[in-house]
Design a binder for these strands. Structure first.
Lengths: 338, 338
DNA sequence: GAGAAAACTGAAAACGTTTTCAGGAACGTT
DNA sequence: AACGTTCCTGAAAACGTTTTCAGTTTTCTC
């Protein structure tokens, strides 16, 4: 079932059918109708490969994702998908893991599929100048803090919350409640990533309140796996049983930490308050419900796509957008009792 | 950067380069090496569209997914992706929502991308004979119970747990603990879906134990959204405050129900036990931890791919596999106290 | 109703591959 | 030295589209 069959079926040339398919204006109305009918009738669907081959550029944008286990990223992904579809582009997803080979695989995907642009979603890859160069299409980082040593800010876009400021805010909230011994739970401090920025927000919020930084209160789980977070929290509690509050940099981490606190016999929030960032649906249903700074996930995906398309269609330059979170008060934050 | 450039670069014909790319045997060793070097040097990556266009069939398999919010399905998806990649096929993902248009969109995707085969993952679409016909490629249902009225079992494959038997088992577990007034929480009873099968398991387990079926104990949330599940549980509790156990047909549902129970002042498991099916990571970290029948998610994805490839490469016929769950005892099941 | 302009249509080239077919080189056998 | 094999290589067709360019109609104007 090709365009040729349709053309023969209704006695016109393939050019005409092609024009109808692509909504060109110069086709007579009755011809257009006839062709449309034939298309319907024969269930003709154009072959994408042929189309992509002949066109100077595709309408495909790629999404490179790390962390499909995280419902937050999945929400963003879904909104990206919808925005992409609404603009009549196609989205292809490439999930990657941690190792370098997969990052390389991502780059080769771009070339072989002739992607028009790219959205880097979640996590933080180590993009060396070399790998960055392999990206050779416009890209936007979404909820992602990579280090692009070879690039300046005008060469790519980003959409995220202000990780530093929001972390600052979260910790400030705890301080306002009267907390002084506030621990923080990170993936890893030194990877140019979201963890690092949020860690800096934590530090500065404490400093601004005149609270001295205590390295023992900084817990690194190494990964974002709940199991690792759980044990990291356990170790933290063994090390310092006197903490009254905990700031976790993601909801999934917060949930795992609450469990660790619970298992250690601490009540939340009476013995230890918990606050985190993300705002996944699940946090409404934990016991107790988690207090969290909700990231505007739908908007985040939509903006990422908007910016990318603006760049692709030369409507605007690369930009860096910082969206604001909304505090959703759950039941995990209270005043310290010791 | 096309195959032609590579050919010119090392002074051979494009045919030779093509043969090297595809690992054909009849290329002299020194020529092969020269071409390989050139490919490396020029960072040549073949154009997928051109390749797909000329080949009689693609190496692409599609996954149609409903319910990306569910971590369970995401796990399965990830294992599918890995299995597909390991077999040197490519996976494309199509997320669909509830309405019929999206199902149709899925079918048209197949045609336009010339997919080799399909995996239907999660949820349950209403596949009318017409829509089924539009699928025109081999497919396997994975954790999916569709109704294919126009097809007999030899025309497609499926991989899932035995929904009926596992539900039976879950309810039986509750009965063994001494429960008699056991409620069930479903998406919707009558949609030929997983809900329905698990509901039948529930009914028969009760019947086998000589417990009369009480329609008031059957709650339907309509959707799988946690918010809907929460309110459905609330209504259930208002209707029948005397239940001592609850069987929810998914972990996400279980978590929402526990919250509703908690909000209504019932302790879990003292006042009401909860058991569910899925085994998502999260259930290890809820308070209390959820008792659940763990589906073998990795195996599920791997088997789905294996079967599909067997069919595609004519190594075997369509089959229907039922995998077994493993009980993971959490803290939500105990003996009834009233 | 003739001529010019506008509107529409079709033939053919092009996109980057794979593969078939035929030809040439190298080799071994007489 | 001639021949037949075997091995390797290249030219060219094909895949299904889009688009350019050159017609061919139709419509309008006088």
């Amino acid at each position: 079932m090709t365009i040729k069959d349709v053309a023969e079926y209704c006695g016109v040339s393939i050019s005409t059918v092609s024009r109808v398919m692509n909504g060109h204006p110069d086709v007579r109305e009755n011809v257009r109708a006839k062709v449309m009918a034939a298309i319907q009738e024969l269930h003709y669907v154009p072959n994408n490969s042929a189309r992509d081959l002949v066109r100077p550029q595709t309408d495909t944008i790629g999404v490179v994702l790390r962390g499909a286990e995280n419902p937050f990223l999945m929400s963003v992904l879904r909104s990206i998908e919808q925005a992409v579809a609404a603009a009549d582009y196609t989205m292809v997803l490439q999930q990657i893991g941690t190792d370098d080979d997969e990052v390389a695989a991502g780059a080769s995907l771009i070339r072989s599929k002739r992607l028009r642009g790219l959205i880097l979603l979640g996590g933080s890859f180590d993009y060396t100048p070399e790998r960055t160069a392999a990206l050779d299409v416009p890209f936007v980082c979404c909820s992602f803090t990579g280090s692009f040593s070879s690039l300046d800010k005008s060469q790519y876009s980003s959409v995220s919350i202000d990780d530093y400021a929001e972390a600052y805010r979260a910790v400030q909230l705890l301080i306002c409640q009267g907390h002084r011994r506030i621990a923080v739970l990170l993936g890893s401090v030194q990877d140019h990533s979201i963890s690092e920025l949020r860690y800096r927000g934590y530090c500065d919020a404490l400093r601004a309140a005149g609270i001295e930084l205590d390295p023992e209160l900084v817990a690194e789980s190494g990964s974002f796996e709940m199991a690792d977070v759980y044990t990291a929290t356990q170790h933290l509690l063994e090390r310092r049983s006197d903490i009254t509050a905990l700031f976790t940099i993601s909801d999934l981490m917060g949930i795992a930490s609450i469990k660790a606190l619970h298992s250690a016999g601490r009540r939340v929030p009476e013995d230890c308050s918990v606050i985190s960032i993300d705002g996944i649906e699940m946090t409404r249903y934990t016991v107790p419900t988690l207090t969290t700074l909700v990231q505007p996930r739908r908007q985040m995906g939509a903006e990422a796509v908007r910016i990318l398309l603006d760049v692709l269609e030369e409507r605007g330059p690369h930009t860096h957008i910082r969206l604001e979170t909304a505090l959703r008060e759950g039941e995990t934050v209270g005043a310290p009792n010791h």
